[in-house]
Design a protein around this nucleic acid. Structure first.
Lengths: 144, 144
DNA sequence: CTCCTTATTGCGACAAATCGCAATTACGAT
DNA sequence: ATCGTAATTGCGATTTGTCGCAATAAGGAG
């Protein structure tokens, strides 16, 4: 486990909330997996270790961690997935046809964020977008 | 009803699918509402008119209409909402704190789409994004 | 107008997600 | 180390969303 260094417990307490074994298990599961996880996968992984941990608790932990921005929640191809919030933002380009996703650093989003703040007084948090579209391969061998 | 002019039926048939009363009712509901609707709201609205129309049929109609891009599906503040696809794209800036959404024309996204096509061979479909962040009011009277 | 094909619906069962409330427990204060 | 309080959990009930399959019906062909 490499995420102990990030001191999630400290961040949670600093905001007046509590670190609990249940929340720790959810964080452990997300850390072990590394990438995206559907809510159900998190439930399964957590119950691998603690079979009697209630499902509702996992769902609430995920919501809670998202609210604190320790975890990101993204809709990818009709499914909601969770992931540990990374230091540097990263994004996905999801193909509507084949469902495959490629990574994207999202560098160009900086300009958008600046503009939104200036023109709409809105501080956008663009940590983990999933943009829908059609990838190159599918554009040629049209499946839709 | 003003959406008859758009000839959804024709578009559906042209692609080899069928227009059905059930799908028409879903379109009517979305048209009558005008804005976003959660799936459950669509079910309720449709059943107002046809109480025995099955839930599963509404869900499948929504999926179907999204696949044809006659309807958009967006995750806003943890909830999935549906809306009739507009002629010109429009987007929302959703405040993570108070949940309120403001419209945004998304003009600046054009540059992003161009860049994604050139650098990643990805044809992004940016019709209806929901960007998360914090609005001006909430940034001052910190609630989180 | 009638027939045929097959897309679509309805249904019942199942799985996933949410909610209210009583019981528990984290953790700052003493 | 113990206490008190309020955040958090567990549970059961309910709601929301999905699936497989048999029955139905949309719409092109004749």
């Amino acid at each position: 486990m490499s995420h102990d260094e990030r001191d999630f417990a400290g961040q949670i307490r600093q905001l007046g909330y509590r670190m609990t074994p249940q929340r720790q298990l959810v964080l452990d599961a997300l850390c072990a997996q590394g990438g995206h996880m559907a809510a159900q996968e998190v439930v399964t992984a957590v119950q691998q270790h603690s079979p009697f941990l209630n499902r509702a608790t996992v769902y609430r932990a995920l919501d809670f961690l998202c609210a604190l921005q320790l975890v990101t929640r993204t809709e990818m191809g009709g499914q909601v997935v969770y992931e540990l919030a990374e230091e540097q933002p990263h994004h996905h380009l999801v193909c509507r046809v084949c469902g495959q996703a490629q990574e994207w650093d999202g560098r160009a989003l900086g300009a958008i964020a600046t503009q939104l703040l200036a023109e709409h007084d809105f501080e956008a948090e663009l940590h983990h977008l999933a943009l829908s579209g059609v990838c190159g391969r599918c554009r040629e061998g049209r499946n839709p």
